[in-house]
Design a protein around this nucleic acid. Sequence first.
RNA 1: GGCGGCGUGGCCGAGUGGCUUAGGCAGGGGCCUGCAAAGCCCCGUACGUCGGUUCGAUUCCGACCGCCGCCUCCA
Length: 465
Amino acid sequence: MLHLFDTATGTVTPLRRRTPGEVSMYVCGPTVYGPPHLGHGRFALVFDVLRRYLMWSGDEVVYVSNITDVDDKIIDRAAAEHTTADVVAHHWEQMWWQAMDRIGVLRPTHDPHATAYIADMVALVADLIDRGAAYVLDDGVYFDSSAVADYGLLARQSLDSLRAGARVDVDDAKRSPTDFALWKLAKPGEPAWPSPWGAGRPGWHTECVVMSLDLLGDGFDLHGGGADLAFPHHENERAQAMACGRPFARHWMHNGFVEVGGEKMSKSLGNFTDLTDLCDRHDPRAYRLLVLRSHYRSPVEVSEASATDATRALERLDAFARRMAPLLSNGSANVSGNSHAGVTPDPAVLDSFARAMDDDLDTPAVMDLVFTTVRSANALADAGNADAAAPLGAAVFVVCEAVGLMLDAGAADAEVPAELLELARQRDAARANRDFAAADHLRDRIQAAGWVVEDTADGTALRPG
RNA sequence: GGCGGCGUGGCCGAGUGGCUUAGGCAGGGGCCUGCAAAGCCCCGUACGUCGGUUCGAUUCCGACCGCCGCCUCCA
């Protein structure tokens, strides 16, 4: 039974599903006004791991993650680039999905766009006004935070203390600093939709309420996002739903920050914070490994050094995959990805995996398990006990796949250039004749072409360097 | 000011009142190998400071120091 830390209660509790065997989850997606950064990558990976684990456990998962395509930042960028908000949003959304594909994040079941839900949002705002939970000012409509008795639940602070700490300027007419915009009247040139209060656009906190309830229904199972969304974004979503009398998320989950040099990552700290850039410079799987290796609620340090570290660890896993693949494929099937046909994965390993994941997604323990199992299987294989190694190898494949870490069993011979295969064949012949000078010369030539040479029982094996 | 988190060996990063006190990367030694590569074995003996509780604390309590986050757009 999966247990998760719930931000609303501050405790680790069992995930109680609305419907047994199904999990409905909503994860706040990006505002598409710029390149995806490492922080986006982390939340996407964390929730992708959760989703995959639920699926692996047999749950039917409905995963909704939105695209915020109307927002002040998009408008600002469009103005700076002398184009329209539409163009900006569309472009960066493409970049977003590209990056998600690269880091192996599954596409959401639904990916609602704010602009497709304007009418529903207008209806929600009108309802809030009717219920006395919102009020109209001359620049828009605001939510009255005092309308919800337990406002501050996710911040784990009282309304009074939140008000006391508010750092907002008091120059606007909001009744309280904790009140927030539901509808912003448009200034000239800004994107606008009609409403009873005048042409304008929705406030940021409204879209997720409408879209989550529409696609997942009242009382859906889990709502998540980065830790900085807990307050005010999620607090405000929840407040709107409560004020309308709609049961909202049953469980709240937030992931920790990515840090660079011990501080919350920021764009000013250089291009390494760009997710695309990280994927260009390292195996994209390295970032997933980095994320898995730390607990999702802890900060994770990302640097050139930690990415390199993770890449090396990955090479170890890939080397293991290459070694195990022949044992798991009945020697015939083309082994790619995490294929493990024909061998039953070690049940004890799978059991340990599930226990660790059920304990608030203890992925560090899972990585411990993976590497420890790899060592055991290698040792058995070294001892010539392939039959004992194979189930461990299969279990490693299963576990890695269940958290989205796809091991690379290496290129098939067909993918190695023919001339290199010929050199490898000549090298085997030279070695058979104990002509090591010639063999080493051939190895040098192969390595010069960028390939790594490994001796195996079957002769020279090549893989990309 | 309010709320919360963190300080672990060269680096990343778990965890625990004592019992062989993760794992990865890097480093050292060994085995294997014609030499490598890959792999296996062994090694470092760490928990911010000062007190307290305890037979015993890195782990519990307190104080302090340092760092970070949220309270404003933010994954």
